[in-house]
Design a protein around this nucleic acid. Structure first.
Lengths: 186, 186
DNA sequence: GTAGTTACCTAATGATCGTAGGTAGCTTGA
DNA sequence: TCAAGCTACCTACGATCATTAGGTAACTAC
C-alpha cells in the first residue's frame, strides 16, 4: 500500500483548509483521514489527539495572519497603519472562516506564549507608538483594538449585520476611523 | 419507574447550568440525560435533536441577558447607561460562561428574529438616542458597541488579558469611558 | 375503572475518538 | 545488493455519542 506522506504540518494545513470548507467545529480526525485516503488511526502517528490537531490549526492560522498583517502594515503609521491592520485581519477572516474560528480557540499559557500571539501584540504596539499614549493606556488600547477586531468579525461572520442597512463594509470603515479618532484623543 | 418531569424548558435550563459548569461545547444529550437519571433517548420526546437543545440554551441565555440588561439600564442615560449596559453584559458572561458561549452560536435568521436579539438592539438604540447621531451612524455605533462587548469578554474569558498588567477590570473601565467619548464626538 | 395519552424504556445503528499491536514499504550500512 | 531496522500505515477493539423504532408503564380524564 502506497504511503500518503503524512506529517504533522501537512495534517494541520489540510485541517485548516477543511475547516475553511466545512467549519472548524466540524473538523474531525476521521474526516481528515478520509481526505488522505487513510484510516483514522494512522493520523495518531503524527498528531497526539484531536485536540492536538486543532491546536496545530490554531497555531498555523495565527502565524499566517501575523505574516500577512506584518506585510500589510510595513512602512505605514498612524491611521493608514491602523486601517491596514484592521483590513488584513478582516480580509483574512473572510477568506478563511475556518482558520478564523480556530484562532478563537483558547490555548494553554505555554502554547500561547510560543504562538504567533505575541507577534500580534507587538504589531499593534508598533502602530500605537505612533499615537501619544503612556504604557498603561497603550495596553488598554491594544485590548480595545483586539476586542473590536475579534468582535466585529465574529458578528459579521455569524450574519448579525447581514439583514440590515447600511452594509457591513460601510460600518467597518466608520468604526476603524472612529478608533483612530479615539486613539488620537485618548 | 418514577417520571423525571422533563420538559423542553427544564432541559434548556439544566443544559445552560451544565454549560456553565463544564463548558457549552461539552454539553451533550447523554450528559444531560444522566443528570436527570434518564436514558438519552428519553430527551427526544422534548427536544428534536442535540442542535435543537443547544439552540434552546442560546435563546434562554439571550433572554436572561436582555432581562437583566433592561433592568440595569432602566432610568439611566448617557455614560451611566452605557456603563450599566456594559457591566451587565460583562457580569453576566463572567457569572455564566457556558451561557455566554451559547450566545455566540449563530442562529438561523428565523430563529434569530424571534429571539431576544432584537431586544438587545433596541436597548442599545435607546441608549444611543441620548447621543446626537443620525440613523446610519447609530447603526455603526451599535455595531461598534456590540463588537467591543463581545470581543472584550471573549478575550477576557479565554485568558488573553490575565497574564499582563494592568488588570482586565481596569482596561474595561477605560474602554467603556473611551467609547462614551467617541460617541459624544462621533 | 377503563381508555387514551404520554413519559420513559430497550434495543439497535452508525459516527466519533483513541489504543494496542501487526505488517508492509522505505532507508541505511555492510 | 541485500539484510536489518525503522516507521508509516493497517486491523481490531472499547468507549462515548446522536438518533430512530417500537414497547411498556404511569398518569389523566371521563
Amino acid at each position: 500500500m502506497a504511503r500518503a506522506g503524512l506529517s504533522a504540518d501537512r495534517l494541520a494545513l489540510a485541517g485548516a483548509d477543511l475547516a475553511d470548507q466545512i467549519g472548524f467545529e466540524n473538523v474531525s480526525v476521521a474526516k481528515l483521514a478520509r481526505h488522505f485516503n487513510v484510516k483514522p488511526a494512522s493520523l495518531y502517528s503524527h498528531v497526539e489527539s484531536s485536540a492536538d490537531l486543532k491546536t496545530r490549526i490554531t497555531l498555523l492560522a495565527l502565524t499566517e495572519l501575523a505574516d500577512s498583517t506584518a506585510e500589510a502594515v510595513a512602512g505605514r503609521s498612524g491611521e493608514p497603519a491602523l486601517t491596514a491592520l484592521g483590513n488584513s485581519f478582516r480580509n483574512y477572516a473572510h477568506a478563511h472562516p475556518g482558520r478564523f474560528a480556530a484562532m478563537q480557540r483558547q490555548l494553554d499559557p505555554q502554547t500561547a506564549a510560543q504562538s504567533a500571539g505575541p507577534r500580534h501584540v507587538r504589531l499593534m504596539r508598533a502602530i500605537l507608538d505612533g499615537y501619544q499614549l503612556n504604557e498603561a493606556d497603550q495596553t488598554h488600547a491594544i485590548r480595545l483594538i483586539g476586542s473590536v477586531l475579534r468582535g466585529y468579525v465574529s458578528l459579521e461572520l455569524s450574519g448579525s449585520f447581514s439583514h440590515s442597512e447600511p452594509s457591513s463594509g460601510e460600518s467597518w470603515k466608520h468604526i476603524v476611523h472612529g478608533l483612530n479618532v479615539l486613539l488620537e484623543n485618548w
